[in-house]
Design a protein around this nucleic acid. Structure first.
Lengths: 148, 148
DNA sequence: TCCATTTAGTGGACTATGTCAACTTTTTTA
DNA sequence: TAAAAAAGTTGACATAGTCCACTAAATGGA
């Protein structure tokens, strides 16, 4: 494949850089009383509207038992409800309660504000370039996924 | 600033996507006996060749006390050595031992292999686009940093 | 059909990771 | 030069995540 050494170095540099960016963003999801991982779970349930635990396990790459506990906690806090599945009685259908939806919205707002803050100081043109670049990366790497 | 809602949504989508990519990559830094965070520290020391703990704290955004323990562990494992600083006797100059350098090289190789694996299946043109996009993102967001 | 396998989920017991506050020593600054 | 700030350490914790064994239901052949 003859991959240029410098390209690999740049990609790794980008990964370190973006790890920091995401780390900074994560820090500020806080003050909701829920951790970053819990927030990811709530967001994913919210986006899907309905799902089963195993989907969350696979999509978010979180250990089964850990997910079980997260769901138990969220359920206990009345953010989600579990309903028996008619199709597969090993599973429960999970969705947000109104309280959960409120938190979902709050998390979304906070996340949006963070992005706005992250972009402040950039021109429309720069934002457009950034956006295009992100779409490009996602498109290429979705094809790849060749990590395993 | 009139930021398009869709752009924000796409950026957030990208962030979720890239969180997963980085998570997958991180998992595989393992089998060295050191955690992701420890690996970050070793890599940073290796790149700098010499530094003080406080630099690592700020650069990697890790708590002081936690860093103190990480450094103690790495020192205990003879991966790094601490040398008294003549300029500021509160601090120590940290650098890799030969053993630490060996691990540094190993981590670098593993990381490079991961990137190669990540990119497998992409054409030269696609890799070039990916690379350009990453440089663009980094350049724009380095300017920004507007999170606090 | 039935039984071996796989899949979804749970819970105990644990380790690893990260945080907070208090403290020492040294440096900086007003 | 006294007060404040900075670098680092330590104890005591809290949070996050992992591993394993287990149950119950679903699935896939012979």
């Amino acid at each position: 494949m003859n991959l240029d050494e410098n390209i690999i170095a740049d990609i790794r540099q980008f990964n370190r850089f973006y790890t920091n960016i995401l780390g900074l963003l994560d820090k500020h999801v806080l003050n909701t009383g829920y951790s970053f991982t819990e927030a990811r779970v709530i967001l994913e349930i919210g986006f899907l509207e309905q799902c089963i635990a195993n989907h969350l396990v696979e999509k978010l790459d979180i250990d089964r038992s850990y997910m079980s506990r997260i769901i138990a906690k969220l359920s206990n806090d009345s953010l989600i409800i579990k309903e028996n599945s008619a199709l597969d009685s090993r599973t429960s259908l999970i969705r947000l309660t109104p309280k959960g939806t409120a938190l979902f919205n709050q998390l979304n707002e906070k996340s949006d504000e963070q992005i706005v803050r992250l972009l402040q100081g950039l021109s429309q043109k720069e934002i457009k370039d950034l956006h295009t670049s992100m779409l490009t990366i996602q498109k290429k790497l979705e094809k790849a996924e060749g990590i395993e």
